[in-house]
Design a protein around this nucleic acid. Sequence first.
DNA 1: CTGACTGATTGATATAGATCAATAGAATAT
DNA 2: ATATTCTATTGATCTATATCAATCAGTCAG
Lengths: 230, 230
Amino acid sequence: MNKIQESENCKNCNCKSSIFKSLTPEELDQIDKGRYTVHYKAGEILFKQGTPSPHFVCLTNGLAKLYIEGYGKNLILALVKPVDYIFGPGIYVDNRHYYSAAAVEETTACLVDVNIFKLLIRKNPDFAEEFIQRVSRQAIFNFDQVVSLTQKQMPGRIADVLFYLREKIYDKNPFEITISRQDLADLSGMSKESSIRIFKELKEEGILKVNGNTVEILNEKQLRQISQTG
Amino acid sequence: MNKIQESENCKNCNCKSSIFKSLTPEELDQIDKGRYTVHYKAGEILFKQGTPSPHFVCLTNGLAKLYIEGYGKNLILALVKPVDYIFGPGIYVDNRHYYSAAAVEETTACLVDVNIFKLLIRKNPDFAEEFIQRVSRQAIFNFDQVVSLTQKQMPGRIADVLFYLREKIYDKNPFEITISRQDLADLSGMSKESSIRIFKELKEEGILKVNGNTVEILNEKQLRQISQTG
DNA sequence: CTGACTGATTGATATAGATCAATAGAATAT
DNA sequence: ATATTCTATTGATCTATATCAATCAGTCAG
């Protein structure tokens, strides 16, 4: 991920998430007061499922994974890249995290006091609406994911993950995969070995070109087909 | 489900969903203006995935299922009973339904104009906050479901569905299952035949007592165990 | 009462995908 | 440079679960 210029203040920060666009300069000042910046090395945990959630996280550099620690394995709900924020549902329920977050690459994040955020939600209807919109989009994404995971076979699920990585995360083709094969498996709800095997098959069929961690989707049509047929 | 007394007006309606508690009488009047009551027979569709979503639905009687029509099969996201509302994420995104809803039993619902609802979200911060809380709880529920569906084996998934039915839907033990075996399967992400088989096994092990459609959880501890071990 | 449709049940079979085990590379430490 | 550790890869085996097919029970129209 490209390095984004950080700022000393939320007002003139060019890495602020788009939901903040409806906030006035004064409101951004409020946010800024309860904010601090933290750096994480790859692999480090931002927060753990089950722990209290006193702030929400805005990613300004790097890449993080959000994952549920289930029964033996993990399920990756989403990857988060700059500039996006991580705002779990627990904040409006019992102030706990319902999933864990870990840095996949070297990562920088702003932590913002959750109470200030909640206050602004009450005060600024545009901001509230923007927020509800984000939460809604997230829910729709989760629907797609759960259908993919429960109704498609492995090749379809891997296809979906590949499209996700290309369109939502790395934003180009070819792209360099910076997550591990285990992460790939946790994203597609299968064993690490299976994800590797499907990956290989797609490569052998000429649908993917794989060079180390650099992946290119050569035959988009066919991959789309695989995604559809499950 | 017991029949709940309906009213001619939202203000003195005793079947209003609890999120409306933060609304003033005037605001309830507004809701009431764009509201109408509809009856559905068992099996009838309230709305279809993909169609526009001009109102949100508040269930006052009966039982409905919310389900995603996937690749060949359906996935039931939730059952909805009185008094609860159905408010899909599409309303704040592109005004489309992202899942379908159908009556499982004879059902009555109030349809409320979505624009009035949105207006009140902007106007009344308590209402907005209440709404966000609901959406958050829903998200947490979905997390639990996706973990159950992707990481547990069939007995664990059926156990989860049984607890769901007892605790969240029928609210008693023994309870009478009013959904079909196919619905049971769509709730637990497996084939109809498999759901029947697991059901039978639980009965034979003495964990369940089954009499027609009346089910009693006899050994809660053991069923909880099955849910845990996957 | 009787055929005919629908949902529930059971059994037999096939297979997608997990698991286990071994090896090969890469990366990091000594 | 070498040892060590961790991740990636491949192969062999096993099993959970789907699918197919048949039967059974209940319900409804005539």
